[in-house]
Write a protein that binds this DNA or RNA. Sequence first.
DNA 1: ATACTTTTGTAGATCAATCTACAAAATGTA
DNA 2: TACATTTTGTAGATTGATCTACAAAAGTAT
Lengths: 353, 353
Amino acid sequence: MTQPHSTPGPGAKTPRPATIEDVAKRAGVSRAAVSKVIRNAYGVSSAMHDLVTSAIDDLNYRPRVAARAMRGSTFTIGVQLPQVENGFFTRILVGILSVVSRSGYQMIIAPMVDSMSGAAALESLLDRQVDGIIAVAPAVPQDWMEQLGRRVPLVQIGQHDDPVNYDAVISDDEAGARLVMEHLLGAGHTAISHITNDERLLAEPSTDPHPRRLRVYEDMMLARGLEPHVVRLDEARMDTRSAAREMLMRRPRPTAVFAGHDAIALTTMRVSAELGLSPDDVAIVGYDDVPLADHPLLGLSTVDQSGEEMGADAARLLLERILGRSEAVTHTFAPELRIRRSSASKVAPQANS
Amino acid sequence: MTQPHSTPGPGAKTPRPATIEDVAKRAGVSRAAVSKVIRNAYGVSSAMHDLVTSAIDDLNYRPRVAARAMRGSTFTIGVQLPQVENGFFTRILVGILSVVSRSGYQMIIAPMVDSMSGAAALESLLDRQVDGIIAVAPAVPQDWMEQLGRRVPLVQIGQHDDPVNYDAVISDDEAGARLVMEHLLGAGHTAISHITNDERLLAEPSTDPHPRRLRVYEDMMLARGLEPHVVRLDEARMDTRSAAREMLMRRPRPTAVFAGHDAIALTTMRVSAELGLSPDDVAIVGYDDVPLADHPLLGLSTVDQSGEEMGADAARLLLERILGRSEAVTHTFAPELRIRRSSASKVAPQANS
DNA sequence: ATACTTTTGTAGATCAATCTACAAAATGTA
DNA sequence: TACATTTTGTAGATTGATCTACAAAAGTAT
């Protein structure tokens, strides 16, 4: 196990970390030569390589990212992430990590502190001069993103715009919502509620996945002559819990609930359980397939967006872009329905009064 | 909504972002004056302040972190995090974020890619010249950490060493394990198994929480004349799932399981459910209180380490340290047992053959 | 051997901020 | 009014890497 940077000197008081200058002196060569070696640049003999490498090892030298950033690149990619506590986003993160970790690039995460600070998180990455950015569901207008894409290689995950200056990785939300609705309608449900995000949370209602899922829900209900019933989470007035409670206390009670994403679905299941209801009373389907959704005790039916694959794909696209590609690419993933206990009743229950 | 950095110029091709030089020119003052204004340093008249501020706004100027880092500080704190997908660590992260976000410091996360790369993650933060580091359960020897603490303000979460050059925030793992064992023994269980991490994963067995929980388990079993039964996760040979299965298939079957942490406990519950067992057959208690543990359908009994509070406390300690404190501080949090359905049976079942 | 390439190494400018040292201006005091 | 003190602003050095331009050395072909 090596020491953290530079020569330790037992008990020594913070010896200044070695710089490229120190390495050059030690090896008896120029700074430029050392720089070439650490960058694997053209024009180093193998003798020079060995000489410099051993000097680097001796001094435990590590280049400072800040100094590199002044002229060249930082070999760092930045990930803007909303809600670290949301299992779906961590699935994406794991996917990104799996690609980035074998790429020679370092990854840093800029978490959003509140739902509106996506731009701030992205700018903080830019301030850091990352070589590329993956924006996960940023709540930021598209033209702002286009501006950003002009300055830095950029890949966005989970917003349906049709970007010119960056790549997009999305899931087919219409298809996913259709899978859910076909499943529920096919089981005979007619009283189906939809519980979803507050529209005011959405900076870009036209590109966000949730309005699309909502739209499909409404269309399919109306197409069958059924009346849609939409519950919106209103951060100001009530939390998910009380919204779900209100929804489940309604008479006639919905026999099925399509939740905008798994966190909402799990809370709905929670409330449902607290009210003494079972999956036979109310079928619940979520969206995302968060890690614990498949736990046998939860058994949450949901739409698998395969976050790991989307994350890994986004990372690959970003690396391509960093290497020079400039044509915009959009990849669309096909979602898959995972039917579990929460909606497994074969026959829809009668709506009770 | 502002544009990402600098003047946009509709459709313009990546106009170079404004530098401090540009601001100085625009305001008709020196670079040093601008620098003072953005750092809130001493020696600026209010006229100067306004002049510079409006030039900054006009040009949409943002200081580059790299350039600042060359001489001054980066106003960034780094968090080294193992396993973003583990709910306990995200609890800690949320706590850190709550403090850091109102502090004027930016936060970046360096995730560990595998269980042994804690040192690499920490060094990458150091390369970035963060002003301080929070290390969450780093798998790194203490003397290495001491070296690191000598170079940069440092706070560690979740390792029981007695640091000299950095602060530590820990939970009283002995007390937590005792709570669990008292609970299970008090309910009449005698066949209690303990399932925990592979010891080879632990860089520092003497400071890691898990060996301490194990020790308490063993001691309390032996003190009552009971035979301890420890299952270790062995990454090479088997995963958590098959380890749990093996444990539950054993005859006589344990009537209670104390799991080293919630992820293991949840997998054990999963296997238990798959084997058709109920909480009445096998009581299960975890450790951490991950977000979904209290879901009524899971109802996992566990030890609440109040991750958010620990994270927030660590962040406060780090900010103090950045401001100059150098005496080492160790804060110990008292864990609380949360009894839920998974271990709620009043009477211990008979060990069956 | 000579002329031409190619390879290898170096000097020195450069990046964008901070910070020190100091001069000029303003303010206070006798 | 003269002198001391405080406040305000600036010039220029500094940080640690990269990168360009070029010279020296080594190969190659004639």
